[in-house]
Nucleic acid binder design. Structure first.
Length: 217
DNA sequence: ACATTAAGTGATT
DNA sequence: AATCACTTAATGT
């Protein structure tokens, strides 16, 4: 157990040392649990009961919404130093997740049980600000997602998607299939392949099997 | 060598 | 932009 606690402490400090006051950091170390999520593994599914809130320490979680016809759409990414404030509301009231979260790359997080977090809202100013900030960020990202779908054509959406992917993963070589992109953008693989080919002919990207290299988008 | 999966492309709606 | 139908290429067993 001592190892577990020091593991939490070490990683908590890496991403949240300047976010929270010492007392709160201590409490998190006391009650948190550490979890690793391998790339591609599902972290929460729609309808899952939310019992914990994650503090992302390392990696990226892709957050997706799926409708009844299994059509899914990419909403936003959670990065290290972040959390999902939506899950916060889910925990207190609704108790069921309305989104699906999948590890985009190998990801590690600290889980905090729900019953602790409510009291922290009044007890700690930094926690309050953290939660509200997170809400604001999520809302902003979702508005942007709506704008993208509503106002951009697929070519531009794809370009934006690729650039965002580069930013999130810190890599110019994206290990991704056309089908995966198509699912994220809720379109068909053939269409994505065609647009990608077009971009390649313009010299903006390079295509390979399971890999897309961004040259100058 | 064979099966499976990813990607490219013309034709049709 | 979506779907179908087919081909080609890469990878796994």
């Amino acid at each position: 157990m001592k190892n577990h606690k020091s593991l939490i402490k070490e990683n908590l400090y890496k991403s949240f040392k300047f976010t929270f006051e010492q007392e709160l950091l201590d409490e998190i170390i006391e009650i948190g649990t550490y979890k690793k999520i391998a790339k591609g593994q599902m972290f929460v599914d729609i309808g899952d009961e939310m019992t914990h809130i994650p503090l992302i320490v390392k990696g990226v979680i892709k957050v997706i919404r799926e409708d009844n016809n299994n059509d899914e759409i990419l909403l936003y990414f959670l990065e290290s130093g972040g959390t999902c404030a939506i899950s916060f509301a889910n925990c207190i009231n609704i108790k069921q997740s309305i989104f699906r979260g999948i590890a985009e790359i190998d990801t590690e997080c600290i889980l905090i049980p729900v019953n602790s977090i409510e009291g922290w809202l009044v007890k700690y100013r930094t926690w309050r600000e953290f939660i509200i900030d997170s809400y604001h960020e999520r809302l902003t990202e979702m508005v942007e997602a709506i704008e993208t779908v509503a106002f951009l054509n697929l070519d531009d959406r794809l370009t934006k998607y690729l650039l965002n992917e580069v930013k999130i993963l810190q890599k110019k070589e994206l290990q991704i299939t056309h089908q995966e992109i198509a699912s994220d953008l809720n379109t068909s693989r053939v269409v994505i392949s065609r647009i990608l080919k077009k971009l390649e002919r313009k010299g903006k990207i390079e295509l390979g099997r399971n890999v897309i290299t961004i040259i100058n988008l």
